[in-house]
Design a binder for these strands. Structure first.
Lengths: 148, 148
DNA sequence: CGTATTTATCATATTCTCATGAGAAAAACA
DNA sequence: TGTTTTTCTCATGAGAATATGATAAATACG
């Protein structure tokens, strides 16, 4: 659904959000804890820093931090630098122009779903997901998840 | 959302469904009409034939035909040989095990959407999409009544 | 049979994603 | 200043997805 790179970015940002203590976190720490390739993650987080989503600091005690409050940081903002979530990927049959006025065969049925997915990424924040982890599981779950 | 190859497969099957007249259609005809790479499409349709979705015939007057009635042919059946639509791809954060009992941070929010997408592919048939094309535009849901 | 037509198959090329490794550049600190 | 730590940047490579071209195999039809 999303690329490996975007998945790394998302998981790393969630990690940063859960480990906010005023100090930056190094790429090495994140890569080790999340089992990701270190240099590749470095490049990935660098791009998020360029986009203003993270701040980076070099040297001792350096690393990455969230630059945006987690309740103002959408999943869309994190993924969008890597994957094209909207635009031509919205048409299931790959047409450049696919609209209510000029629909492909799948348009009416697919568009509703694609819109829901789009809304999910745009409206779900990092804070929403963090909160999910620390809440007792809902009516369907049998075991409470533990933060950590 | 789906791979280029799966998109070719889907579009080609829709083409075959709309051009059923008892005769097979050659790869060349499809590739030309739909602007797809000919040999690549050949390989793609060959796999669908192996899966029993199409029949193929060599030689003059040969080509491909639907092997399944279009109202019994789900989009899932067409795409599944090429893309993994379910399984590991269901977890937004890429975890192997992600369930109500052991959810990732995104599970409860994402799973509902992923399930809808899955259902779309499993329950939507080729016939559904063909019918969509011949209906007056503007309908947002369900089937419009047809004259005659 | 012979030939044209068409799929089937193989080899290869191209492009993109994912990943590794080696340094360069910056910053903290003794 | 020098050393260490860290990000930044570049070069490169592996592998998958996408695509092309050539040839083999099957089939219709004269």
């Amino acid at each position: 659904m999303i690329s490996q790179t975007a998945e790394y970015a998302l998981r790393a940002v969630l990690y940063l959000a859960r480990h906010q203590n005023g100090d930056p976190v190094s790429v090495e720490t994140i890569a080790d804890d999340l089992s990701m390739p270190r240099n590749y993650l470095s490049k990935t987080l660098h791009l998020l820093a360029k986009r203003g989503i993270l701040t980076s600091a070099r040297g001792p005690r350096g690393g990455f931090e969230l630059a945006v409050p987690s309740d103002e940081l959408s999943l869309f903002a994190i993924i969008e630098p890597f994957d094209e979530l909207e635009g031509r990927s919205q048409c299931l049959l790959g047409r450049r122009e696919c609209s209510d006025q000029a629909p492909c065969a799948a348009h009416h049925r697919w568009q509703r779903l694609a819109q829901r997915v789009s809304t999910f990424f745009r409206e779900t924040t990092v804070e929403d997901l963090i909160a999910e982890l620390s809440e007792p599981s809902g009516a369907t779950a049998g075991h409470a998840s533990r933060p950590g």
